[in-house]
Design a protein around this nucleic acid. Sequence first.
DNA 1: GCACATCCGTACCGATCGGTACCGAAGGGG
DNA 2: CCCCTTCGGTACCGATCGGTACGGATGTGC
Lengths: 202, 202
Amino acid sequence: MSSTTPVPPGRPRAFDIDEALDRAVLVFWSKGFEGASLDDLTEAMGISRPSLYRAFGSKEDLFHKALERYTEGLTAYFARALAEPTSAAVATAVLHGTVEAATMPGFPTGCLGVQGALATGDDSRPVRDALIAWREDGIAHLTRRFQQAVDAGDLPPATDPHLLALYLRTVANGIAVQAASGSSRPELLQVANLALGSWPKP
Amino acid sequence: MSSTTPVPPGRPRAFDIDEALDRAVLVFWSKGFEGASLDDLTEAMGISRPSLYRAFGSKEDLFHKALERYTEGLTAYFARALAEPTSAAVATAVLHGTVEAATMPGFPTGCLGVQGALATGDDSRPVRDALIAWREDGIAHLTRRFQQAVDAGDLPPATDPHLLALYLRTVANGIAVQAASGSSRPELLQVANLALGSWPKP
DNA sequence: GCACATCCGTACCGATCGGTACCGAAGGGG
DNA sequence: CCCCTTCGGTACCGATCGGTACGGATGTGC
């Protein structure tokens, strides 16, 4: 354990950087990148503006770190879903997980990866593109998983894995938008189950 | 024809107000309400800032008028879809229309009603709420249409019209997000058809 | 041709935006 | 105990935000 916390020089940080990042996630999640001002962020994070810049670099850097933390935390269901034994179970876990994450009591509704920066001004284009890549990454993971399912005979040989992945991500995006519009968890669960009705049988 | 254009007093407007509105639609569509600055708008519309305010009131008023024009113009497929004879035909027309409108060459990708203001700062809350109401209105129209279908025996008596409407709107929202992420029209058409596979039979 | 109403654009408003210079405070290493 | 490094916050930066005062231009009605 001697390798942990090598005690960096200088005055120690007076706030928990991960906790502050969690607060930033909530602000970006509910207001989007452009709608979240530095005053919003610093107030929610409980730190001053220069502290934010020392710890995270810039508003855009902070967003990327917040997205990373969001991915590892609140959307961890996605990684678990990929480990389900059948393609149908994967699809079910993804959509149910999406509904739950998008309608979590005490958290903003919807999905940071969708509403963080869907349409933006030119200045925020890098953030917008990062979210596009984030969603694309999810599709890529699903595509590989469904290709495995085809290879294993869990899906018909003629199945297009990419189409199924895109379909799933599309429904998940739609659920996120509806959750942000105020749709309830039970409603969206029914929608998810309806969407799963067209899933191909092996 | 004597009732048209009663010739208001004062200096006549030097630009076509509907054409200017069309340009504003494109700006809000591609950059969102918050991402669209007045400089972006005035430059695209080819008018000065005070002209914009005289003709449209405020940035928020302009957005509402742009949304109205968008609804009557580029999403007119929706009203036509409701007139289809069967619920399945309605659903097909809505999703196919959504794909086409969201991937129109020469226009921004996605849907103004989704990416115009999905997550915003507090100042833009009214706009955000207006878009929520806009999407909710679409669901209400679909719900009434599918209730008709149930009454007419076109859908099973136990069918929940609201659930079907919410499902359709959810998929449409997801398609809009994917289109904004760069998915192609053929891809999204396949996704739409896959989503239609779970449509209930009469 | 004169009064009136509206439109035109330049030039400006206060507020807020993201970002930083600065200096005192707080720790470890010599 | 002093030096060095980093963190703390106050107070500020130029740029841009949405919005408007104002004076000249352009039309109709009398």
